[in-house]
């Protein structure tokens, strides 16, 4: 037996290579086969196609707001008063947890449009409440100002602004 050792060693090497190649290719194949099973849970083609909503602004009085639905989420559309716009613009950005100028959050200052989902854990904040007369999330006590920016509480970010454009003076297209 000992005389054949070199040959066997060579055989062992070739065999190891075969095992590693088979195992490796098998693992790659399995990984690729898993992807369709993961991807099927991503939004389907019909869901992706429904990604914009048009809202009529004509009936919203100054100082009131409506909640539209976009991609299954509430969108706050607020016709802000001059006081609210002024309050939103008179804040020192340095003091904000998530610094953002009001002009970057509203295309037209009188219309504040944002996704009504608290950036903490996804509850819907209440309007015209909280320490900053903006929105207040009752779940865990996050306070947002009249520009929808986070001022106090556990939420890390300002209320998100969805992509939108004004089709005319009375109609906005969200998404």
């Amino acid at each position: 037996m000992t005389t054949t050792t070199p040959v066997e060693e060579d055989g062992v090497k070739r065999r190891d290579f075969l095992y590693i190649a088979t195992g490796g290719i098998g693992a790659v194949g399995t990984a690729m086969a898993i992807w369709p099973f993961v991807d099927q849970m991503n939004p389907s083609a019909d869901v992706l196609a429904l990604s914009s909503t048009e809202v009529d602004l004509g009936a919203i009085e100054v100082g009131s707001e409506i909640t539209a639905v976009w991609q299954g989420k509430p969108v706050f559309i607020r016709h802000r008063t001059a006081d609210e716009i002024k309050a939103a613009n008179s804040v020192d950005l340095e003091t904000l947890p998530d610094p953002q100028a009001d002009t970057d959050r509203a295309v037209k200052p009188e219309w504040l449009i944002m996704v009504g989902v608290c950036t903490h854990l996804g509850c819907v904040p209440l309007k015209e409440s909280g320490d900053f007369n903006g929105w207040f999330c009752p779940c865990h006590g996050s306070h947002y100002d009249t520009s929808g920016r986070i001022r106090k509480g556990p939420a890390p970010l300002n209320l998100a602004v969805p992509p939108y454009s004004f089709i005319d003076d009375k109609t906005v297209k969200i998404g």
Partner: peptide, 13 residues
């Protein structure tokens, strides 16, 4: 048919 047409890899499943 929704599975066959719209769901990602639905036809495969």
């Amino acid at each position: 048919e929704h599975i066959m047409r719209d769901v990602n890899y639905g036809w495969l499943m």
